[in-house]
Structure formats: C-alpha cells, structure tokens
Write a protein that binds this DNA or RNA. Sequence first.
DNA 1: CTTGAACCTCTAGTCGCTAGAGATTGTAGG
DNA 2: CCTACAATCTCTAGCGACTAGAGGTTCAAG
Lengths: 141, 141
Amino acid sequence: MFSIGDMSRRSRVKVPTIRYYEQMGLIGAPERSEGNQRRYEQADLERLMFIRHGRDLGLTIDAIRELLDLSGHPDRPCENADRIAAAHLSSVREKIASLRKLEAELERIATHCQGSTVSDCYVIRALARHELCADEHERID
Amino acid sequence: MFSIGDMSRRSRVKVPTIRYYEQMGLIGAPERSEGNQRRYEQADLERLMFIRHGRDLGLTIDAIRELLDLSGHPDRPCENADRIAAAHLSSVREKIASLRKLEAELERIATHCQGSTVSDCYVIRALARHELCADEHERID
DNA sequence: CTTGAACCTCTAGTCGCTAGAGATTGTAGG
DNA sequence: CCTACAATCTCTAGCGACTAGAGGTTCAAG
C-alpha cells in the first residue's frame, strides 16, 4: 500500500496533482486508511505513470483519458490510439514550424538593434510598425 | 474616432480581448459616446497594434507592458527592450528543442505500431512501460 | 420609426495545474 | 505512552490570456 507521497515520489507527479487527477476522474478514488488518508495499490501507480508519460509527451488530459479507456480493452482495435498519437505528432510539428518562423523573426529583430536609446531601438520599432516584420506571423500558444 | 469594432477589424484583436486589455491596464480607458460606447483615436489603434505584434511574437502581457512603457520614453537606453527580446528568443529556442525531442519520440511511437488490437498497440505499450521510451522526456507546456 | 447589428456590463468557464489556510493523522524517537 | 513534526486532509482561490454567454442598451441604415 502506498501513501499519496509514495505515489508522488515514484511517479514524479506532485501530490496535489494526484488529487487533481482523482477529481478529474483520471484515476479512481482509492481506499482510505482509518484516518482517511489515501492508500494506493500497484495498479494505481501504474495508471498514474501512464498518465505521467502521456503528459510528458504533451498529450491532453482528454487524450490520456481515451488512451486509458482503450488500454482497459485489449481486444479492441487500436486505431483510435494510433489516431491520437498521429494527430498529436502533427500538432507538435505544426507548433515547431510556427516557432521556427518566430525564432527567425525574433533573431532578426533582436540582433538588428544597435541603437542605444529607445528611439533608435529596432525591437521597439519592429513592434510599432509592422512593415518591419519579415512576414505575417500567425498566433501560437 | 473608432468604435471598438473598428479597432477590432483594423488590429485583428477580438472585441472582448480589447476590453480585456483595457481591464488589464494595457490600454487606457477611451472616451465614450453619449450612449456609453467606447470611442478610440488613432494613437489607441497604434498602441493596440503594438500589443498585437508582441502577442504574435509570443511575448507575455507583462513583457509587452514593459515595452510599451519603454516606447513612451524615447530617450532612455534600450537595453531592457533588447534584453526582453533576447530572453524571449532563447525561450523560443528552448521550446523548439524540447518539441523536437518530442517529435522524435512521438514519431517513433506512432510509426512503430503495426498491431491491430490494443494489446499489441505500441502507442499504448509505450505509455504503460517507460522502458520503451527512447530517453527521458522533460515536461513542456 | 423600425429593425437588427453592434455595443454595454457582468459573471463564469477554459486548461492543467499550483498555492495557501486551517485542521487532522501518521510515525519515529525518547 | 508521549511528544514532535512531517505528511496528509478538504476547501477555496489563483495563474495567463483569453472566451462564452446572459441580459440589456445604443447606433445606423433604410
């Protein structure tokens, strides 16, 4: 039996986050000690580590939830799992592409500035006048 | 004089976001029409476009606030502006680096799966058993 | 003068946690 | 057995940067 602290140390998921996952229904409510403290089993730990790996890979809670559901049904086809992974991969790739544009733009702006006062500052001028931008940048989060 | 809708169309910042920026103190409270609707001037639009460019570049509201303050003092040295841009550039680069690791890992996982059922699914197995990961992935947001 | 789009304020929700208050429990040492 | 004190408990609120919706008012075209 693991305390929530044991679970945290073993999974590298913080204690309040574990409680949050319980609240979100990602992990079930475990048994309790006589004094009302959570007591987990090995299977709970494995589920938590699954979640942690998914989060490390940048999956959303909802995607992880779906993958957890799937993993409980070993006989079903795994198309959905593949689809989730592939969709996430392409969103990661899109994000990389936008960030690269951003990197180029920021590099241009940041290295272009040789002025010593704000009035000469290329950084400020680039923000104030869009003509100085190399191209339209789209919004990323 | 521009209505908030005009401002929105010209800056491509959504109407509620403009009101939000006002609330956050990024833009001042403009004059009002007799019927209490916001009425902006050219200078307000330019400030808003400045903000939009900063957000497009991924700057935080706080960074933009600082840059806006600076841009109101043309005689000051622009070190701070350069510092903000450089710091942001390196954070963008870090994010790219993490996303690239993620991309590699996800590609490996997603293309590795040839099983047809969940029990054979490499995606699920990779999440369940960390040994299948190529290396430790750190958490990104 | 009428219609309907645009505007107003206010509150609450998004995502994935994180922080803090204030109370209780578990555990190791004496 | 007692005492510390770390760990746990529940609950609420906050983060960043918006977004959505309710319910009401104003503006502008025809």
